[in-house]
Each structure stands twice: as structure tokens, then as C-alpha cells.
Nucleic acid binder design. Structure first.
Lengths: 334, 334
DNA sequence: TTGAAAGCGCTAACAG
DNA sequence: CTGTTAGCGCTTTCAA
């Protein structure tokens, strides 16, 4: 591993000059020949700057962390891609970290000085206090699709639009009896989706309070909620599920109970992942701008590191888009 | 952010003493009172060592990278957990990184000095040369479930046992016409699984060459392979799929073609994930010791950092275990 | 246009 | 048992 000093020696200059050349120091007057010699030397020695020294000197780690509840959730694929994209432009690395309720603390995960900032998604079962605790970290944090009293800096999705899109799709198909399987209780995004459902479905007589089932973001919770729904006296003809994985669980429970989907029951969910088209029937989803949100969150973070203020942003472009598949159809006439 | 110097000042000692106390330096004779004063001061100031300085001084990053082709694949959940567990014991952090064919290079991802070592899984479509290129990194690397000529340091699964377990399950159910949907062409694990299938199925007259379909690790490839299989003149009564996501795709394609699973066709796959039990019918799988493998890989890496040699290891304990679910049944008598 | 020198925060000889 | 000192590799004044 070549050191800067060696590059300088080979080029016959001092380390400072080498440093200036290799960092493209703007306000530096370097003789073209010197510059070239340094560049050649660096190439010849395959010089790669030492991140540790550079980080120490600059008080800057050159990396940000994307912290999610469950790394393996396909939901995050495009979020991650968006964050990566912005990071590449800011020549920063992205570390993905998984923060779980009983695991290592965020501080432990990202240490002191390992990253310059954090994009944090609230895990299931994490209330405001615990979230606040996680944020007691010495780097700026942008929250993803969640907000917290007293914290500025978040990027959210248009949860209301997502639910509206889903409900409108069902209404257009002719449904008038629509249920809702909600997300994790403590999550404000879940609350927003639920409020939107109450507004556009329940308030319009398309749903009933007992058809609104609390659940969570994952498949088992979705399955349990569906089972509870099917146990009711009167069944809806369609259900909106607040997240894809829960929808996979809900679909599984419905089929296991002998319900014909979409014949007896249509299912539409929020978030598009590869999985949606590989369950049977394939799930109709509302695709959310996860890539754009990831890009926006990372960009906000980098701009903040450059001096700008953090703020709270809702990503509305591209708008939520319905992806119609086999799990929704017109209600069967009875 | 309190510095070590401030802690030392508050405790009325020199930075070196403070350092020794806070690092539990074994061969250091510190007066109990002094020690206590330092500890108190550190607590009072909420001292957290600066990773950058420490990394520079110790030439050690205190972190390892787990590099996988697709971060969001549920397969990696328990692998990641195993790696985390070992890392916690060695007070190291784990960074998860995604290495894709046309994305940032591994060197770019982990930088110079950001991590002390790497656990690397071969991505789909990466041949030996490209893999070798990725390994030209200045830190030790342990390969996961792949090996490479000239590279020592790998942890693999018992691919043969997995396939044998799957085939035996089908044979026990009475199947005599078994197909195989293979993994990614360039992947040696795929080759091992396929060789095992040839040995225990084809060679025993339970399969035919044309029932062995090349595919890949992901759902679309599995779906395509199933479609090809169903287009054949004679159909098998069961199929072993080399990976779970491909099996989800294969199942989807079979159902879409109107095939009754498991009535007309049983499906069994390798690797257990949450998804397996939430497709319909739920997939019978062979659970592999991913957690143990993650633990082993990280442990090997840390021991190597401590001076031990890297070696090539096959994790056979716990043994692959069949998890019977709805996608397999006795063949229908015709 | 270039070089010398200081120092980021920490640890590890080496002295005392 | 404790303090002094040097230096990890880099960037950046400041002086030449």
C-alpha cells in the first residue's frame, strides 16, 4: 500500500504538493509538469489514500449509514439504490446497518466518527422515546418516512396518496365493501395511511370500523389480520393492505381459508417489490417513489454536511402509481 | 464530544493513563483510585473514543464488511445474524455492502482502511476472473459458499447434503420422475448441487438429462426454467429447485400454467426463508445452516486478523434439514 | 509555485 | 504506578 510520502518522493516533490495535486485543490497553483509527475507517480504506485488518516485530519468519515429495521426486506432495494446514487455523486460510501429492538445500539453500530450522517428508518415496535434515544448520536440524521417531535430532518412518502390510489382502484372496479389491514401501531406512516383510509373509505360508507384491522409490516401480522377479518360476521369484497410483506401474509391466510382471490376478495397493497409478481395470484400494488426518496434523503444529508439546513420533505414525484395484477378484480355479483 | 485529553484532565492524570484504563490494558499497573477517577470522568463526560484516530493509530478499522450480491435477499438474514454475533464478540462492527456487476467496485465500496476484512459472496454472473479482481483488495477475504483457484479462505455449505436431503424426501414420497432447476451457471455451488443431483437422481434413473434446467438464483430465472420444463414432452412429477427465490418463481410459473402443486407436481427447494411459508402452497425446503456459516466465516476472519491462517471450511453442523410443507406430496397415481 | 511544520486524537515505547 | 514523547498518514496554514 503506497503512502502519499512515497508518491511524493517518486515524483520528486513534497507531500504537500502531492496532496494538493491529488485532491484537485482548486486554489492551488501547480506547475503542469509537476502535476503530471505526481499523477504518474500515483498511478504507478496505485496510490489509494488512507481513509483513516484522511478522516482524522478532515474530521469527516466519507461515509453515511442507511439504517433500516430489516436489511433483507425487498422494500429497501430501491431505497438503497437511491441512497447509493446520491452518495456516489458526493464520493461517499454507504453502510447499511440493521437496527433491531434488542440488538446493538445505533451508537454501537456506527461508532464515533465512522460515518458523517445517518438515514434512519423507524423499526416496528419502536416508540417515539426509543427512536429519540437512537438519535442521540453525534451526527446529523435524516428520518425516513417517519417524523419525531423536536427533530427536523425527514423524507417521507405521500402515504395518503398511496391509500387513495388503492381505494380508487377498488372503487373503479365496483367495490363498496372495503377492509383495511394497517401497519405497525407505533408508526406514524401507518397512522397516516389509516387516517387516509378512514377519510376516503369509511367516511364514504365504503368500509366499517370493524373492517379496519391493526397489524404490522410483516407477513405473519398480515396473515393474522386477514384471519381475524375472515372470522367476522360480514365480509368485505376487497382489502387494502398497508405493506407488501403483510399483504403476502394476508393473501396466504386468505387462500388457506379457502377464499377465492380475487373472486371473493380483492387485495391491493402499498409498495412494489419483486415479490408482488411472484405470488399467486400476483399482487396489485401501489408503487411508491422509493428510489426518489432515497435520493432525496441522501442529498439532504449531504447538503446539510455542506452547511444547508435540514428540513422535512414529502416526496410526491413520481406520484404513487397503481400496478394492476391478478389479485384485484370486480366484485362477484351476488 | 469529549476527547481523551479532557477526560484525563478531569481525572487529573495524563492521557496515557486514561487510555490504559479505558482500554483495560492488561499489563498495566494502575492504582485503583486513579482507575476509578478516570472511569468516573469518562462517564461524566460521556466519553466515546474517536474511531478515526484509533483506527489510524492501530492500523485497524474495527469493522468488517459482509459483501453480498443482493442485500435484500431474505436468504442473508441469518447469515448476517451469524456474522453480527461473531463480530460483537470481537467488538467489531459489520458493514453490509452490495456488490453488483456494474456498480461501484469493491475497492470503492470498502475504501482503503475502512474495514479490516471482508466476507464475500459471489454474485450471479460473476466468473472467476471478475471474482479474482474483486479480491484484489488490501484486506483478508473469506469467500462464502464459493471457492477460487489460488485463494485460501472460504466457508461453504454442504451443497451435496442439501440436494440429497431434497431428493430423498421426494423418493420417500414415491416420486420416480424428478427434475432439477439449477442455480447460476458460473457459480461453483450451483455446480456442486447439480453434480449431487446427477449422482443421486439421474444416475439412479430417477431423472433425465432434459429435466435438468439451467436457471439462476432469482425468481424470474426460476419461472423461465419451469416454463421450459413444462413445455417438454414428458413431465416429471417433482422438481428440486436450487434456491428459494428461484423456487418462488418456479411455483408461480407452474400455477400460472394451470399445474396443480403438489397434485401434479411437487416442488422442494434449498434454503429456508420467511417467504417459503407464505407462498401458496407453502414451499417444502431444506434448511441450511446459514447462521452457523456466518458465525464460522466471521470467526475465521477475526482469528486470521489475530494471526491464525485462513483455511477452507465446509459447515456441516447443523446438517441440512428438511422442512416439509404443502408443496410436496406423493405423486398422483395415473 | 513549492516546502516545512503543525496537528487531527489516540496508543505504545520508554523513562522516571 | 505514572508521565513524556513520538508518530500513525494526511491536509493546510504559513513562509519562502
Amino acid at each position: 500500500m503506497a503512502r502519499l510520502k512515497e508518491v511524493a518522493q517518486l515524483a520528486g516533490v513534497s507531500p504537500s504538493v502531492a496532496s494538493r495535486v491529488l485532491n484537485n485543490d482548486a486554489g492551488a497553483r501547480i506547475h503542469p509538469d509537476t502535476r503530471q509527475r505526481v499523477l504518474d507517480a500515483a498511478k504507478q504506485l496505485e496510490y489509494v489514500p488512507d481513509h483513516r488518516a484522511r478522516a482524522l485530519r478532515l474530521s469527516r468519515a466519507g461515509a453515511i449509514a442507511l439504517v433500516v429495521p430489516e436489511v433483507n426486506n425487498a422494500i429497501f432495494a430501491s431505497l438503497h439504490a437511491g441512497v447509493q446514487e446520491a452518495s456516489l455523486e458526493h464520493s461517499s460510501a454507504v453502510f447499511l446497518a440493521q437496527l433491531v429492538h434488542d440488538g446493538p445500539s445505533l451508537n454501537r453500530l456506527i461508532g464515533n466518527g465512522r460515518v458523517d450522517g445517518v438515514i434512519l428508518q423507524r423499526s416496528e415496535g419502536v416508540d417515539d422515546d426509543e427512536l429519540r434515544g437512537s438519535l442521540s448520536v453525534d451526527v446529523p440524521a435524516v428520518l425516513f418516512n417517519t417524523t419525531l417531535q423536536g427533530h427536523t430532518g425527514s423524507v417521507s412518502l405521500d402515504d395518503r396518496a398511496a391509500v387513495v390510489t388503492a381505494v380508487e382502484h377498488l372503487v373503479a372496479l365496483g367495490h363498496e365493501r372495503i377492509a383495511f389491514i394497517s401497519g405497525a401501531e407505533q408508526h406514524d406512516a401507518a397512522a397516516r395511511r389509516r387516517a387516509a383510509f378512514d377519510e376516503v373509505a369509511t367516511a364514504r360508507g365504503l368500509s366499517r370500523p370493524e373492517w379496519v384491522q391493526p397489524a404490522g409490516w410483516e407477513a405473519p401480522a398480515g396473515a393474522a389480520a386477514m384471519t381475524a377479518l375472515l372470522a367476522g360476521a360480514e365480509r368485505p369484497t376487497a382489502v387494502v393492505v398497508a405493506s407488501t410483506n403483510a399483504a403476502v401474509g394476508a393473501l396466504s391466510a386468505a387462500l388457506a381459508a379457502g377464499v377465492d382471490v380475487p373472486g371473493e376478495l380483492s387485495i391491493v397493497t402499498v409498495h412494489e417489490t419483486w415479490l408482488a409478481q411472484f405470488v399467486s395470484p400476483a399482487l396489485t400494488t401501489v408503487a411508491m417513489p422509493m428510489h426518489a426518496a432515497g435520493l432525496a434523503a441522501a442529498t439532504m444529508l449531504f447538503e446539510h454536511l455542506g452547511g444547508a439546513e435540514l428540513h422535512d420533505l414529502v416526496v410526491t414525484d413520481p406520484a404513487p402509481e397503481l400496478v394492476a395484477r391478478g389479485s384485484t378484480a370486480a366484485p362477484r355479483r351476488t
